[in-house]
Nucleic acid binder design. Structure first.
Lengths: 183, 183
DNA sequence: TCGCAATGGTAGCGACTCGATACAAATCAT
DNA sequence: ATGATTTGTATCGAGTCGCTACCATTGCGA
């Protein structure tokens, strides 16, 4: 009747997802903050955040509003597509993030050996991506591991995005991108 | 800066923990319902539920109140210790549970092979128990896998609990117990 | 056996979550 | 042009969840 593994996963999930009541922020707000710090400029929009957090647009809109109220996130318009809202951390947001204590997820995984981490990571990755695919969500991923990533484009910028036809800095390459498709 | 594995774990955790908006219940309520269905009679109290869910007493008190309002859970007193509140599913609660669709956690783990499940389970179990120990919480566990479990006590009841000095039915042996200590 | 800490639980508050519905604006496809 | 799609916001209601108080009951030590 009850599946042992799925029970284990569910309890662990509660602990991790409920983690993050520090410095006046809530778990979802910390996760949004962390995402915005790690995502490239194309992926810092309420829509991308919605897909990343797996929530609805309305919820994310409120989370973003709360972060803006606290002065941790800034909103700006996109010249090309005026429906879009560009999000960015403020210096205060970056500072808050730097002060954050270790997360439960970090503490939990820190107790694993290198071999164990290597064993568990691909399994978890598969579970996540398969589930996201089933729900029609994008999996996200690192810019540099994308099939549209052109290393050393040698036309001024270090690299280049073949999909959006835009130059990429070295920093961009290490960021999370919503358009990413595994190479 | 960002740890890949812990990121993966956090996203997966959000999806799993946020899963369960069916039939007028919320995720936490479903988990409480599932726990109460799987726990033995010593472990069906608000306090045990608090430890299992990893929340605070107040939160759990409200979740239980919501389930009682919906007629899915029943409260009763304990004769021996009148501070305690015993919880039990009502027939309606059991029926609601039977109607529940597959959880995200079940769907995710269903995609794994037997070997993969065998590989991931002990790791997850260790991550969870180590973390619970750190917070001073009990790990819980199956009655039959407890060091206080006396199989085939042969004094009327099938088995026996050495800690509480009580007879155990075959059904009890397969239930979750808050007092459990690994054999 | 008295007093007092520990235990188990509830009450109420405030900020937030989160799905749902409705809506507005910009953009895209035909 | 014009209707569908995309992107985001507004509002609502139920619930989550940590927090501080608070109340019984129980257990323990002097």
């Amino acid at each position: 009747m009850t599946d042992r593994l799925s029970d284990l996963l569910t309890r662990t999930a509660r602990l991790i997802a409920g983690d993050g009541y520090w410095a006046g922020l809530k778990p979802a707000q910390w996760q949004a903050l962390r995402y915005l710090a790690a995502a490239n400029r194309f992926s810092r929009t309420p829509g991308a955040l919605t897909a990343w957090l797996g929530q609805t647009k309305g919820t994310v809109s409120q989370t973003v509003a709360a972060l803006e109220r606290k002065g941790l996130v800034e909103r700006s318009e996109d010249r090309d597509d005026r429906r879009l809202v560009r999000l960015a951390l403020t210096p205060a947001g970056r500072a808050r993030l730097a002060e954050a204590p270790e997360t439960v997820a970090d503490a939990m995984t820190a107790g694993l050996t290198g071999d164990e981490r290597a064993a568990i990571e691909p399994l978890l990755a598969r579970m996540l991506t398969e589930h996201l695919a089933q729900r029609g969500y994008r999996p996200f991923g690192l810019c540099a591991e994308c099939r549209h990533f052109i290393r050393d484009a040698a036309d001024g910028a270090p690299h280049r995005c073949g999909l959006l036809a835009l130059p990429l800095s070295a920093e961009d390459a290490g960021a999370i991108c919503i358009e990413q498709e595994a190479a």
